[in-house]
Design a binder for these strands. Sequence first.
DNA 1: AATTTTTGTTCCGCAATGCGAAACTGCAGT
DNA 2: ACTGCAGTTTCGCATTGCGGAACAAAAATT
Lengths: 263, 263
Amino acid sequence: MKKVSTAMSSTLRCLKVLELLAEEPFELSFSELAARLDIPKASAHRLCTTLLEADLIKQEPVTRHYMLSSHALWVGSGYLRHSPLYRAAFFPMQELARQIPGTVQLGVLDQGYVLFIHSVGYSGAPHAFADVGLRRPLNATASGKIFLAGMSTQDVESIMAKCTEKYTGSTITSVTRMKQELAEVKKARYARNVEELLPGYWVLAAGIVDPEDRAAAVISITLPLSDFSPEREATVADLVKEAARKASLQLGPSGISRALLQR
Amino acid sequence: MKKVSTAMSSTLRCLKVLELLAEEPFELSFSELAARLDIPKASAHRLCTTLLEADLIKQEPVTRHYMLSSHALWVGSGYLRHSPLYRAAFFPMQELARQIPGTVQLGVLDQGYVLFIHSVGYSGAPHAFADVGLRRPLNATASGKIFLAGMSTQDVESIMAKCTEKYTGSTITSVTRMKQELAEVKKARYARNVEELLPGYWVLAAGIVDPEDRAAAVISITLPLSDFSPEREATVADLVKEAARKASLQLGPSGISRALLQR
DNA sequence: AATTTTTGTTCCGCAATGCGAAACTGCAGT
DNA sequence: ACTGCAGTTTCGCATTGCGGAACAAAAATT
């Protein structure tokens, strides 16, 4: 084995702790943490001390459990402050939410998931909980389908291979079924999701795209099922597409391709 | 010199890069970055490679400028997923936004600033832009005054010493003036901010507190100045205090003190 | 109260790992 | 072609992080 990367392995290991804490639904004790990462306790202790000193994690004083700190949120949210996508979509999203009362969300692709980075408009829906930073699987979201529609066949297949969980009865888990769906998405230039992730809601999504229809981000709107009908879908679809188109223009063609090149 | 901390210095230096990128309003070139941190270019390069490998930063492909990645947002937002404060305040905030249409925000204390971690309700106001993760000075926000009101005199003094910038004509920069203000805040159990940060808006805030009135977080509501009058203030103040009280109860007394102990 | 078990912290010698000066590459603009 | 400037790679040195093991403190069990 030869040196393959110039990255600092000790630091990478430390960042693994952050990832773990972000992924786990709740706080972790020191021992759990060391066990989960399969790291000697002495080393894990050093990693935690380091992150504590950087103020990225804190520990619950009585259980001594570790969790992410509010400062970590601040650091991560720096992404929003820099994101041209966020800026470009901001006003179109608000306009959409005014036209159609519902939950309007902005999603980007992060490690094989849709990551929602912004949300406007309120519906007492449970999915609105912790909406910024929420990650959802590609196969079970309208936004995800937009991203899948822009991918190569082998990418779609490899991703779908990992999407086996059925969130509701209508979650798409079959590759062939998904390919049909994606063909429709490409034709209609928007994606639909009716109770495939959350019962009682339907969602339409449209991509913020470059001229080749590859999506850098997605604008979606979630509505209660009681509000669903074919005519309603047509209306909403047009408005969602319009919002996405405005965001695309705002970003500019160069903006989009740069965003895409970053992957 | 003796070993003073057990933290990993190389990693801390790497995390400084993240801090810098979070703080700077825009993307940074590699040289700027190295210069800003006063680090040899070879080392800075290693740090960036490491963060790239961890997917916490990305580089703009044509300018090669570095910026935070969307994955960094995901990691940081893990704080929200774990935060009992966020959970406890979620529904009271929505209720408040329904009662009074305006921007309802949830703030915590982060390194001498108010950090807004959640926001509901729309007003086309500029402060709503990138509201999650936004940091504001303590002296110029209603939320900040709530935190200041729970601090010792010397803490207030040392913080005020750094608060010299005047955002508007009425920004409080004098320590004595602030002490008067804080006395009122303690008495009224809510804080007011009329055009001290943003012209055209007024804000009321109430703390999510423990029995000793020390705030673990703050709920605030921002309204257009056209909506201001003494009677209106009384109405809004009661509702903001009520929302904060509900959140306090939801969190539970133990929850609050634990949150406080974490500092 | 005495015990075992579990969990968190510190020590310490070894060598792996990160360090930074300097050399090198590639790209713009004379 | 030449000069700068921005970014990347090399390389020998010693600093720094490593982890087994011993230690301390707190729960859980007897």
